[in-house]
């Protein structure tokens, strides 16, 4: 049992780390050169942490039922099916089981709630865009009649790429194509789905530093991924110019310290305009490897009882 608790518990470490360590990881230099690896690491940390937190409760709960965890899980499963409920579990084990169940429900509820809110907002936006924007067939985009520059994508199965007249006026043809390519990358990569669990997690655990930092760190990574696709087709310079032109200075009253999002834009332009320093790859590889190792523990906790049933049946 100890081994299983350790396997699951280790995976909890990154998620329960303090805000400063999380922020240090978020702002690590290599992440802007390898956004895909950074995103994978965040995802692995999240999945590992979630599975571990739920798994630890299960491991502790079934401890008195059998010597090894997978067998204990089977015994518990069988006796629940047989209608004997939680026989043989002491109060501590029942608490552990309740912890797992509560956590799982809480996570799922917030994920569903966030998904419903976001998709509702997207549906309404698509409706509004269809109502007031003009089709730009040659670019398969919609144009809002507004002089301020704007470009975005309403993701979904039928994604809408939306520009404003201001943006069309501001951008020359290559820049416009780069912007559209960037937005299509978001739509094609379903970046909205990648972001969703992080939004849900930040709402479910607002007091958890990791959740807060991850929710802030992931959107810039998705932007960089989309930038990378656009720069591969249209070049760094064109995309950087488009970014600078489209970055609208906030109007009166919106002043104050630069927000995190502001800094992210600056990073995006800098990584397009600066020559890439060599030798940052190993950090990305190392981060992914550590994340994979962490992930393996809690995954094993959940897979082991299933494998026992399917592979070594009887």
């Amino acid at each position: 049992m100890i081994m299983w608790v350790v396997a699951a518990g280790l995976a909890l470490l990154p998620v329960v780390m303090n805000g400063r360590s999380a922020a240090r990881f978020a702002s690590a230099r290599w992440t802007s050169h390898h956004p895909r690896a950074a995103l994978l690491t965040w995802q692995a940390m999240g999945v590992a942490g979630g599975l571990a937190a739920v798994g630890v409760g299960l491991v502790v709960a079934v401890a008195p039922l059998a010597a090894v965890f997978p067998h204990g899980a089977h015994v518990l499963g069988r006796q629940i099916v047989a209608g004997r409920g939680l026989d043989g579990l002491g109060p501590a084990q029942v608490v552990a089981l309740a912890w797992s169940a509560t956590l799982l429900t809480w996570l799922l509820a917030h994920t569903v709630r966030t998904a419903v809110r976001v998709t509702g907002e997207q549906r309404r936006l698509r409706l509004m865009v269809g109502l007031v924007a003009d089709r730009l067939d040659e670019h398969d985009a919609y144009v809002i009649p507004d002089p301020r520059p704007a470009a975005y994508c309403v993701p979904g199965r039928r994604a809408h790429v939306v520009l404003s007249r201001g943006a069309l006026r501001l951008l020359d043809e290559p820049q416009l194509r780069a912007v559209l390519e960037h937005e299509r990358a978001h739509a094609a990569g379903r970046h909205d789905l990648a972001l969703l669990p992080f939004l849900a997690c930040a709402r479910a655990f607002p007091w958890l530093p990791w959740a807060r930092v991850a929710r802030q760190a992931v959107p810039p990574l998705l932007e960089m991924l989309a930038d990378d696709r656009a720069r591969r087709r249209y070049g760094d310079r064109v995309l950087a110019e488009a970014l600078v032109r489209m970055a609208v200075p906030a109007g009166e009253g919106a002043g104050g310290a630069p927000a995190l999002a502001d800094v992210a834009v600056l990073h995006r332009v800098e990584r397009l305009t600066r020559v890439r320093p060599p030798g940052s790859r190993w950090r990305a590889v190392a981060a992914c490897a550590v994340a994979a190792v962490l992930l393996s523990g809690p995954v094993a906790v959940f897979l082991a009882p299933l494998l026992c049933v399917t592979v070594w049946r009887g």
Binding site: A151, M246, V248, V269
Partner: peptide, 26 residues
């Protein structure tokens, strides 16, 4: 959260810093 923006609003200082970054770039 509902949309993927190309770039949002930035503070005037950052807008200036962006132009600067582009000017200095090759």
């Amino acid at each position: 959260a509902a949309v993927s923006r190309f770039v949002g609003t930035v503070s005037p200082e950052v807008a200036e810093a962006l132009r600067e970054a582009l000017r200095e770039a090759p």
